[in-house]
Structure formats: structure tokens, C-alpha cells
């Protein structure tokens, strides 16, 4: 069974060359695999361990520690709502309630069509333009007065 693709292995090897120990590239390897597949399966964990001379248990310990490594399938677009203090002061609860209502899901869930997964996230470092959220790699700011119609229009950009 081939656990990682040639392309994944090539990208991992490129990162590995930046460190004096191969295992240091574990987080990069997890991110590379996730970029290609959307999430990190048990097979992928084993494949990374083999490539970096580590053990599946050690790689899984790392994978489960970091907020942005997904060990379960997620939707095509992950919506991360900042729920830290500045966003909370500026009305994050209203924003996350609106998202939950429009998407029909709670934190940690994926819409039935596999389009969106909703998760909370730590401070996004854009507190002067709170509340904020991340959809994929895009940071959306100044959402204090976002209503259902504006949210729907925003989500339309993520088919």
C-alpha cells in the first residue's frame, strides 16, 4: 500500500532539508498532506512517520496537539470564527450565532453537502477590526453589523 504520493514525498523532502533532524519536518509534512487531501488519515500519519523516520504514535501525538490539523474529514471550506476577547467585546457571539443558524450546524460540525465546517479559533491578530473570521485562507474583518443577507452573499463566494 502506498501511503503518500510522490508529490507529497517530494514536498516533504524539501522541508526536511531545512532542519538538522528529519522529524523536525513533522508539522510541515502534516500540513502538506492536509493541503492535498483536506485532512490527515491514519494511513497518512503512518506514511509521514515512515518518511521521517518517526513512529505513527509520535506523529499522531503532534497531529492531535495542533488546532489546525484535522484528523477527521472537514468540509471544502473551514470557517474559523475568532472567539477571543477583543472579538467577544465587539459582538462575536452574535456573529457565531448567525453562522450557526445560516449553516444549520454547531461548532465542530460539517454541513450535509460537505461544503462548510464551522470551528472556533483563537485570536486572529486583527483586533482593531473585530469581530473577524477566517474562511479558508481569507480573513474577513469588521463584521460587527453583518446581517443574514450580507453573510449569505459572503458565503456565496465559497462554492
Amino acid at each position: 500500500m502506498k501511503m503518500l504520493t510522490e508529490e507529497e514525498n517530494r514536498e516533504i523532502d524539501r522541508e526536511r532539508a531545512h532542519y538538522e533532524q528529519p522529524r523536525a519536518a513533522t508539522i510541515e509534512a502534516l500540513k502538506i498532506v492536509q493541503k492535498h487531501r483536506g485532512w490527515v488519515s491514519d494511513d497518512a500519519v503512518a506514511g509521514i512517520a515512515a518518511r521521517l523516520g518517526s513512529s505513527p504514535a509520535a506523529v499522531d501525538a503532534v497531529a492531535t496537539f495542533y488546532n489546525l490539523i484535522y484528523r477527521r474529514p472537514v468540509g471544502r471550506h473551514v470557517v474559523h470564527v475568532c472567539d477571543s476577547v477583543s472579538c467577544w467585546v465587539m459582538g462575536q457571539t452574535k456573529l457565531s450565532d448567525l453562522l450557526k443558524a445560516r449553516l444549520g450546524i454547531d461548532y465542530g460540525q460539517t454541513t450535509p453537502d460537505g461544503r462548510f465546517t464551522l470551528l472556533p479559533i483563537c485570536c486572529l491578530g486583527t483586533c482593531d477590526r473585530a469581530p473577524a473570521m477566517l474562511i479558508g485562507e481569507d480573513t474577513h474583518r469588521d463584521l460587527e453589523t453583518l446581517d443574514a443577507a450580507a453573510l449569505d452573499a459572503l458565503l456565496e463566494r465559497y462554492p
Binding site: 477583543s86 485570536c123 491578530g125 486583527t126 483586533c127 482593531d128
Partner: peptide, 9 residues
């Protein structure tokens, strides 16, 4: 990642 901090960005 210190909540409320957005200077290094």
C-alpha cells in the same frame, strides 16, 4: 497569538 495583539502582523 496573545489575544488582543495585532502589532507584529
Amino acid at each position: 497569538m496573545e489575544p488582543g495583539t495585532f502589532k507584529d502582523r
